[in-house]
Design a protein around this nucleic acid. Structure first.
Length: 504
DNA sequence: AAAAAAG
């Protein structure tokens, strides 16, 4: 199946390039849109306590956002009962109209062409329809936005950056901070594709190679959009190679991790403060699939008082499209047997697989063990060199490798549509508490499968009481049932994958 | 006890 890879998802796969191209040039009435897939962008009840931070906030329903659906009765978008559950809290009295079409967003023709021709998008996904008007219309309020994995968050902020930047001004006007090198590179690639016809320049600021020119000897950045990781961005700002005075928009991808105490909080706050020094009105966008209550609380005090926000209920985040299984293994060593004897036996035909590991060493060792047994697998973890990391990711994205062993370096944001199977070799747990799961990491790992609303499956390998405790806590937290697979025959696994919709 | 970035 020939499909565009590494794109943020929208509901628009079905569009052919031909019809999309016509739509890009003619802003006349669109043909009736096909039925939109439901993206499980869902409701939230938890936001009632967070809205106390701003007394003038008004909570609005999606129905209230739909003003002209009589005219666009072809669009089931905002009326779809499964799909009308994002909780939007807007600040002040600025009215926002959900964008049923990209044409509703006053985008430049060049940007529309990028969306239709290069990205082959047809119309905004749920989160895009709601968040883009908030991002793009004055007074450009800060935004905290949560949306389901694979629902098109990247497009929201990439489009926001491309749209707000003035291509005639040769200075950084949009900055995006990401937790990993891989995610920064992926986001830049999306931005370059989407902005292909705009003439907007971009620069990716990630850890430099040892033999690279030192920052102090570099020319200042002229590119309008800069995407990178915290350390390198801080470095460029402190060496005055990244000017902050012209920045109009600052994005934190995986914002909960970027602003978590145990994450990148210090770096992120430093970057925010550096920008504030000479720039009072830079719009801040915070995007993630997950915001636990602690970080949500901190974040709402970090952004400007009059921010907008979009939240999803945690029970609704667990992916209906991805079927979750648990496999009881007698001991740690038996996990390798489960992988080679069962999962590899049937996994070849179901697309690509990512195996998540707890540590760099265990990733390296499992890789070695499987290679010694004659299996073709690759692995990635933070102790590899830049070149090795880039090579492993590229090979996987190009479909040259089928099985990738990874630490949580790829747990968030990594977008490869052909990944249908995720193996949790270990369940993720909080670093301080061995018997407390890291629900956010679990959700992000699971979200590597089932991109774009596709089918997917997760096998959680379980071998002791602690694993069982973690598993049941995860089930409770997301309100989902994780089905047991007995590690006794290939047939059991086949049945599981059939049930998940991955096998006929 | 760890992963991530980066020093």
């Amino acid at each position: 199946m020939a499909e565009p890879s590494s794109t943020a998802a929208t509901a628009a796969t079905a569009a052919t390039a031909a019809t999309a191209a016509t739509a890009a040039t003619a802003s006349t009435a669109d043909p009736p849109a096909p039925v939109t897939k439901s993206w499980a962008d869902e409701a939230d009840e938890e936001t009632n306590n967070t809205s106390t931070a701003e007394s003038e906030s008004s909570s609005i329903n999606l129905e209230a956002l739909t003003i002209d659906d009589k005219e666009k009765n072809s669009s089931k978008f905002l009326d779809d009962p499964d799909d009308s559950n994002i909780q939007a809290v807007t600040s002040g009295d600025t009215p926002y109209t959900s964008a049923a079409r990209f044409e509703d967003l006053s985008l430049s023709p060049e940007l529309l062409k990028g969306l239709y021709v290069e990205m082959k998008f047809e119309k905004p996904s749920k989160i895009q329809a709601i968040s883009l008007p908030m991002i793009l219309s004055p007074p450009h309020r800060d935004l905290i936005a949560q949306a389901h994995n694979g629902s098109g968050k990247t497009t929201c902020f990439v489009l926001g950056m491309l749209s707000r930047v003035d291509p005639k001004v040769q200075a950084p006007q949009a900055l995006c901070v990401c937790p990993t090198r891989e995610l920064a590179i992926q986001n830049v690639e999306v931005l370059r594709r989407m902005g292909k016809y705009t003439g907007i320049a971009s620069e990716c600021l990630v850890r430099l190679d040892r033999d690279a020119v030192h920052v102090s000897k570099r020319a200042p950045i002229m590119a309008q959009v800069v995407i990178g990781t915290p350390g390198t961005i801080k470095k460029f700002i402190s060496f005055k190679k990244l000017g902050t005075s012209r920045l109009k928009i600052l994005v934190f991808d995986e914002a909960d991790q970027m602003l978590a105490q145990e994450g990148f909080r210090d770096d992120s706050l430093k970057i925010m403060k550096d920008i504030e020094k000479d720039n009072k009105k830079c719009q801040v966008l915070l995007f993630s699939a997950t915001f636990n209550d602690t970080v949500k609380n901190f974040i709402s005090r970090t952004v400007k008082m009059d921010h907008n926000k979009l939240f999803v209920k945690k029970e609704e985040l667990s992916l209906d499209a991805v079927k979750q299984y648990k496999v009881y293994c007698p001991d740690e060593l038996a996990k390798i047997d489960v992988i080679k004897d069962y999962i590899f036996e049937i996994g070849e035909n179901v697309g690509q697989t990512i195996i998540f590991m707890a540590t760099r060493d265990s990733a390296r060792l499992l890789h070695q063990a499987l290679v010694n047994l004659g299996y073709e697998v690759t692995s990635i973890q933070g102790s590899l060199s830049n070149e090795e990391r880039d090579k492993v990711v590229k090979e996987f994205k190009d479909g040259l490798t089928q099985v990738l062993i990874s630490t949580d370096i790829l747990a968030r944001g990594f977008d490869q549509q052909q990944v249908n199977l995720v193996i949790n070799y270990n369940l993720p747990n909080k670093h301080s508490l061995r018997d407390e799961p890291d629900y956010e990491v679990y959700l992000h790992r699971v979200g590597r499968a089932g991109r774009f609303g596709r089918k997917g499956a997760v096998f959680n390998l379980i071998c002791d009481e602690n694993d069982e405790r973690l598993m049941s806590k995860i089930e409770n937290h997301f309100g989902t049932c994780v089905t047991e697979v007995r590690a006794q025959s290939v047939e059991e696994y086949k049945a599981a994958l059939k049930e998940a919709g991955l096998l006929q």
